[in-house]
């Protein structure tokens, strides 16, 4: 019996998502009196470092064909390792990769699955976890009845904590099915924290008037070290790239801080952001619905407020 977690290593590097999933697996293992084993697919720097967050062993399938993502390859590899180590709980991140393989893993391992889990399981009465449903308007408590359980863990739900030291790494080989797909390219912005992982997010909407005004949003994000996001019409009109669109039909996020400037707070927008720990709304309309969902509000022109906030933050950063 063990808990197996998939620690993603995009471009060979582990990010916070990997730490989170390992530490989540560690806590589940503690509860169930088992151990947390991390599986790493493709190239990765320092796989032993996953021990710091609680993995007792790292199974490294270093086959370089796993450097490109292929759903069938990933499912086959995780399945083989899961069977090898007798995993009863398998956890992946609720990321593009994790979401792509969750359902398939559940089928292949004959397991019950829950996606977007945001709490540790309660195991006193069966195995129960919680997730947001109805676009964050409710929380469902779900029991997994099968012997093997597969979960995807929502980002920023359970903070990673350092609990150990370097873990032993076993290099593994697996049999992969013949790939029927060819990845021909990838176009991503490097160097920024992806939205689902971001702890700090600065977001803006139609109140910005046009894409040429985004400099003040980027300045604010830079001072904070935050990731930028936007409302849907802003992405639809091409003012900002699609991957920045948050909300019901965009990315769902739960950062510690969400700053929204010039966004009205339509219910479909709130759906993707209302799990944020702290929400700051900057809007010149006192009736903007977003204020009802906010912790802090500034009712004024964003073209004055955003630069002033950036300046205050600069002073704060310098004196801290």
């Amino acid at each position: 019996m063990s808990v197996l977690v998939l620690a993603e290593s995009p471009k060979g590097r582990f990010k916070k998502a990997a730490q989170e999933v390992v530490h989540y697996g560690y806590q589940v293992a503690q509860m169930t009196g088992s151990e947390c084993i991390a599986v790493v697919l493709g190239s990765a720097d320092n796989p032993e470092s996953l021990g710091i967050y609680g993995a007792t062993k790292v199974m490294h399938v270093s086959d370089s064909s796993l450097d490109v993502f292929d759903t069938q390859h990933y499912i086959a590899a995780v399945k083989q390792i899961a069977e090898q180590v007798g995993a009863t709980v398998i956890v992946v991140n609720h990321s593009a990769t994790g979401k792509s393989i969750l359902g398939g893993l559940a089928v292949k391992l004959n397991a019950g699955s829950v996606s977007g889990v945001n709490t540790l399981p309660v195991i006193t009465d069966g195995f129960r976890v919680k997730k947001n449903v109805f676009a964050g308007k409710a929380i469902a408590e779900i029991q997994v009845n099968s012997d093997i359980k597969v979960l995807s863990l929502m980002g920023n739900s359970v903070p990673p904590v350092e609990v150990g030291s370097a873990a032993p790494v076993e290099v593994q080989t697996v049999t992969l099915p013949k790939s029927k797909t060819v990845v021909t390219g990838q176009n991503t912005v490097d160097g920024i924290v992806p939205l689902p992982e971001a702890e700090l997010v600065v977001s803006a909407g139609r109140g910005m008037k046009g894409p040429e005004n985004w400099g003040i949003i980027e300045d604010l994000a830079n001072v904070l070290g935050a990731t930028t996001a936007c409302s849907r019409p802003v992405a639809d009109t091409g003012w900002r790239p699609h991957h920045e669109h948050v909300g019901q039909t965009g990315v769902a996020i739960r950062p510690n801080l969400y700053i929204a400037a010039g966004i009205s707070g339509a219910i479909q927008h709130l759906a993707g952001v209302n799990s944020s720990k702290t929400i700051v709304v900057i809007n010149k309309d006192p009736e903007a619905p977003f204020f009802k969902a906010a912790d802090y509000g500034v009712c004024a022109d964003l073209f004055d407020v955003v630069p002033a906030l950036t300046e205050s933050l600069k002073r704060f950063k310098e004196s801290n």
């Binding site: 993502f69 992806p194 699609h242």
Partner: peptide, 9 residues
């Protein structure tokens, strides 16, 4: 769609 961009296959 993948985090922060797209992948083509």
């Amino acid at each position: 769609d993948i985090e922060g961009g797209v992948e083509v296959a």
